[in-house]
Amino acid sequence: MASEYTTSEYIKHHLTNASMCSTDNGIAFNKACADAGFWTWHIDTLAWSIGLGLLVMWFFRSVAKKANSGIPTKTQAFVELVVDFVNDNVVSTYHGRSKLIAPLALTIFVWVLVMNLMDLVPVDVLPSIAGLIGQHGFGMDPHDVYMKAVPTTDLNLTFALAIGVFGLIIYYSIKMKGIGGFMKELTMQPFGHPLFIPVNFILETVTLLARPLSLALRLFGNLYASELIFILIATLGIWQLPLHFPWAVFHILVLPLQAFIFMMLTIVYLSLASEDH
């Protein structure tokens, strides 16, 4: 596939989302959405993230239905290992009491992990399949068919995850401290004198907003850079194999680490929000 494009066209094609938007002439796709404005849907990101989420739910549910208290199967042992790993981190990090935090942490870790693992799929496989489907099924030019299969390389998705966590931070802050306590936290820290209320409010607001911003940008930046390097390696053609394998092996460690960091920061931020002192 790389030989059909110049290097810059090849890279741009792989880093472009399949888009859908609403225009004056009805529903438009991809290049026609360039000037559509704000409401453009990245349908590949939505499809892969929702599909992988449903796959994870089905897998965990099927294992739970077949679980037994005797000798566990290898699959059950693996799921129990993941659940215990997440639970141990929640118990040691979250200092409040909530029935939501552990399931939330498990969902974030596993969902982000499987989305990250899509980065290990060779970069030409899924876009080529999508191109063939577009060409033979819908009469489209394969060059006009886009497919980004790694949802976490889309800033829209990482920000959506981070905004969800941010909403929970605000919820737990108000729940534990009340609106008055939450406002006092924003205005009377770190300097306890009333004269410093404007300074405190600016500092605390920046700190509060930096949490979802850092969550979103850290995950996006690491996965986007990783995918870009895979694409650059793919431009080498047959010579990519000696480089692709060690980079993929390295990412077997990096991709779970990024999911773990996202989960741990979520737990830490919610633990800070739940402190009522």
Rank of each mutant, 00 (worst) to 15 (best):
3 S>C: 04
224 Y>L: 11
52 L>P: 07
128 S>P: 08
263 M>D: 02
65 K>Y: 04
270 L>A: 02
144 D>E: 09
34 A>C: 05
205 T>K: 02
226 S>R: 10
185 E>A: 10
91 V>Y: 13
222 N>A: 13
153 T>Y: 02
140 M>W: 10
68 N>A: 03
243 L>E: 01
57 M>Q: 08
189 Q>T: 15
84 D>P: 04
23 T>F: 11
207 T>S: 09
265 L>K: 01
259 A>R: 02
198 P>N: 05
191 F>H: 10
72 P>K: 03
215 L>M: 13
85 F>S: 10
144 D>L: 02
223 L>C: 14
141 D>E: 06
41 W>Q: 13
95 H>I: 07
101 I>M: 07
129 I>C: 03
147 M>D: 06
250 F>T: 07
87 N>G: 15
173 S>E: 07
30 N>T: 01
56 V>P: 04
181 G>R: 12
22 S>R: 12
253 L>Y: 04
81 L>M: 08
243 L>D: 01
47 A>N: 12
35 D>R: 14
97 R>Y: 09
251 H>V: 00
152 T>Q: 14
106 L>C: 03
192 G>H: 05
207 T>Y: 14
213 L>T: 14
74 K>S: 08
77 A>P: 01
152 T>F: 14
188 M>G: 15
192 G>W: 01
121 V>H: 01
191 F>D: 07
142 P>R: 01
120 L>T: 06
133 I>P: 04
57 M>G: 08
109 F>M: 01
109 F>W: 06
54 L>N: 01
91 V>M: 09
173 S>V: 09
183 M>H: 03
208 L>Q: 02
66 K>A: 15
1 M>W: 11
124 D>Y: 02
60 F>W: 10
93 T>N: 10
56 V>T: 06
117 L>P: 00
60 F>T: 11
130 A>R: 00
198 P>E: 06
61 R>H: 11
209 L>E: 11
62 S>Y: 13
18 A>L: 12
